[in-house]
Amino acid sequence: MKTLPSLTRYSLLLLCGATLALSACKKDTAGDDPSPSGDGTVTWTHNGVTYTDNFYAGAIVDPGDKIFIVASSKDRNNVLSIPLLGINAKGKGVYDLRRGSVLDDYSIGSITLNGADNKSGATYSTLYGPSASNGTVTVTEFDKNAQKLSGTFSFTAGAVPLGNGSGTQSVTNGSFSIHKFH
C-alpha cells in the first residue's frame, strides 16, 4: 500500500538529494584540507564549464531498488541528481533517461541551477526533455556490499513545469566514482 502518491514521493526524494548536496557543511578554518576527501567524485560539463565535486558528491540508497547520485558545484549553485531505478536487479549496464511523467518510476537526470538559497533555483529534468530518450547513465561498477559505484552519464533536461526555468539544459562528459553510500 502506497502512503504517498508517486509525484509526492518523487518530489520528496529529489528534494532530499538536493538538500543533502546543498546543506553539507565545511569548517571555515585555516587548517582545512584544500582537497577534502568525500564519498567519491562526480564530474560533469554544463554550458561549457566543467565541474568536479569530491566534497558534496555521494550516493543515497532508497529503501526500494533505487540509488541517487548527487553532486553540486563548489558554490552549491548547481546541483545534480541522478536516481537510478532497478540498480539492485540490473547492476552494471546502460540506464535510459526517458521523457515521461512524474508518476512513472524512471531513472532520470536532473539539474537545479542557481539553487544555493533553496528558493529560486530552476530545476530541469529528463522527464521533461525534448526527446523520447534524453540521455543515458552507463554503470561500469556496482558493488552494494563494498559501496562502490562508478560510470558515465550525459543528458538533456527540460524545465520542470511550474518552476523558474524555461527551455532545456544539457549535461555532458559526466562521470562518477562513489566509494561510500548513505
Rank of each mutant, 00 (worst) to 15 (best):
3 T>N: 04
5 P>A: 09
7 L>A: 08
8 T>G: 08
9 R>H: 05
9 R>Q: 12
10 Y>V: 06
11 S>G: 14
16 C>K: 12
18 A>Q: 11
20 L>A: 11
25 C>Y: 14
26 K>H: 05
27 K>P: 00
29 T>N: 06
30 A>Q: 02
33 D>R: 07
34 P>N: 02
35 S>Y: 11
35 S>P: 00
36 P>A: 04
43 T>G: 03
44 W>T: 00
47 N>H: 10
52 T>H: 09
52 T>S: 14
56 Y>I: 00
58 G>A: 03
62 D>H: 14
63 P>W: 05
63 P>E: 05
67 I>Y: 02
70 V>A: 08
72 S>E: 13
72 S>M: 14
75 D>F: 01
76 R>S: 13
77 N>D: 15
77 N>H: 13
78 N>F: 13
82 I>K: 01
86 G>L: 11
87 I>F: 13
90 K>R: 15
92 K>G: 07
93 G>N: 04
98 R>E: 09
99 R>G: 08
99 R>E: 07
103 L>V: 00
109 G>L: 01
114 N>V: 02
118 N>V: 10
120 S>A: 11
122 A>V: 07
122 A>R: 06
124 Y>C: 11
135 G>T: 02
139 V>P: 09
139 V>T: 02
139 V>K: 03
140 T>H: 02
141 E>I: 03
144 K>A: 15
154 S>I: 02
155 F>M: 06
159 A>F: 05
162 L>N: 14
164 N>R: 15
164 N>L: 14
168 T>G: 07
173 N>Q: 13
177 S>D: 15
177 S>V: 01
179 H>S: 07
182 H>I: 00
